[in-house]
């Protein structure tokens, strides 16, 4: 599992991208940005935390805050144990995990294959996505872990920071879902 975390110097124009599956969509993250891929783990939920916080995990003697990517996309939260990717943020010293449905293989893509986010994208997707790679099998949405940092998600104010106490989460959660569906349809 850990070999995915090894930083890889880009030889020329190809990048190695780790593919992730969330719901029906395919996402990719540059392998050099991933610290470690944990197998299945079930984080402990934190009451009153924003909906997109999947919970906390013990990780190397630390408590790792984990972001639920499904919740960010407005999908139903996954209750069972899932794959967690660990990211490091050197400057802000903020280490966090990202929970996805599954981790696929590592794909080599050409640097030029990246398309910027289309202008019609809604604000939340604009915030989360970092363009897309055109693969023969379909689009792979590129993610930038730095944009998925819990502190940044909170600062953006787009993902329902209201704590569960006021019942605000379910409302905004539903709204995200609707918008997503609208966009897809």
């Amino acid at each position: 599992m850990r070999d995915a975390a090894e930083p890889r110097t880009d030889a020329g124009d190809t990048l190695s991208i780790c593919s992730l599956r969330v719901g029906a969509a395919l996402f990719g993250i540059d392998t050099s940005q991933i610290r470690e891929v944990l197998g299945t783990a079930s984080p402990q939920r934190v009451p009153l935390a924003p909906e997109y916080i999947a919970g906390v995990l013990p990780y190397r003697g630390e408590v790792l805050t984990t972001v639920c990517f499904r919740a960010l996309l407005g999908l139903e939260r996954c209750s069972r144990a899932n794959c967690v990717l660990v990211f490091d943020d050197e400057e802000n010293e903020e280490r966090f995990g990202l929970m996805v449905d599954g981790v696929g293989g590592v794909i080599a893509v050409h640097r030029d294959a990246l398309e910027a986010n289309p202008s019609g994208l809604d604000a939340r997707s604009q915030e989360l996505f970092d363009g897309a790679y055109k693969l023969p099998s379909g689009l792979m949405v590129r993610l930038d872990p730095q944009r998925l940092r819990p502190s940044r998600l909170a600062a953006s104010g787009l993902f329902g920071n209201e704590s569960g106490l006021f019942g605000g989460v379910s409302g905004s959660h539903g709204r995200v879902k609707q918008e997503r569906q609208g966009e897809q349809g």
Binding site: Q44, L48, V56, L57, G61, V63, T65, P150
Partner: peptide, 26 residues
């Protein structure tokens, strides 16, 4: 163990700990 600043801001938890059975408790 300290919580990330995000979770600390909730204000109700002062940290987390790993219990004897390996699970985390706030």
């Amino acid at each position: 163990k300290p919580l990330s600043s995000q979770l600390h801001e909730i204000g109700v938890f002062s940290g987390a700990t790993v219990l004897g059975n390996g699970t985390l408790a706030l």
